[in-house]
Computed example of a mutant assay.
Amino acid sequence: MRAELKSLFSPDADPLKDFAPTGQFGILVMAMIGPAGQQGHESFDFMLCTPEWFASNIREDFKMGRHYLFVRDFDYTQLERFIREYCESCGEAPTWSALAEKLARLGKWEFEDYGPYRAPPPAW
Rank of each mutant, 00 (worst) to 15 (best):
D73M: 00
I27P: 07
L103W: 01
S10K: 05
E101A: 12
P94F: 05
P11I: 10
A3C: 10
G37K: 03
L5I: 02
P35V: 14
A98D: 13
F25L: 11
R105L: 13
N57R: 10
K6L: 04
A36K: 14
E88R: 13
P120T: 07
F70G: 08
S7V: 01
S89C: 07
H41A: 14
T22Q: 14
L103P: 01
F44C: 06
Y76H: 10
P51G: 07
Y76N: 02
Q78P: 00
Q24C: 08
L5A: 03
M30Q: 13
F44Q: 04
L16W: 03
M32W: 05
T77W: 01
D18E: 15
R118S: 12
R81Y: 06
K17R: 14
D18G: 04
G107A: 02
D12V: 05
D113T: 05
R81C: 04
A55I: 02
G107Y: 03
A31D: 04
L106R: 01
S89H: 04
T95I: 04
T95G: 05
F46T: 09
A55Q: 14
M47T: 12
L103A: 02
E4N: 04
L106F: 08
E52Y: 01
G65W: 05
K102E: 06
A100K: 08
R72T: 14
G37V: 03
F25V: 09
T77V: 14
P35E: 15
L79I: 09
T95P: 03
D14V: 08
L106N: 03
D12H: 15
F62V: 15
S10T: 07
E52S: 10
G65F: 06
T50H: 02
P122I: 12
M32I: 10
F82P: 01
I27F: 02
Q24W: 00
P35H: 07
E4C: 02
K17W: 00
S89M: 03
S10F: 08
L28C: 10
R105M: 10
A31C: 09
R2C: 01
Y76W: 01
M32G: 11
M64S: 10
R2T: 13
A20S: 15
R66I: 06
R105I: 07
Q78G: 12
A13E: 02
I83V: 15
M32L: 14
R105S: 11
F46S: 11
I83W: 05
L16D: 02
Q24A: 15
I58N: 12
Y117H: 12
Q39W: 13
F82S: 05
F46H: 03
W53Y: 15
K17L: 11
L106E: 03
E88W: 02
A123V: 15
F74W: 06
P51F: 06
R59W: 10
F19A: 12
D113Y: 14
Y114F: 15
F111I: 00
T50I: 08
E60N: 13
T95S: 12
S7I: 01
L103I: 03
A98M: 10
W109T: 05
V29W: 00
E60F: 12
D113C: 08
H41P: 00
Q24K: 13
A98W: 02
F111Q: 12
P122Q: 13
N57Y: 01
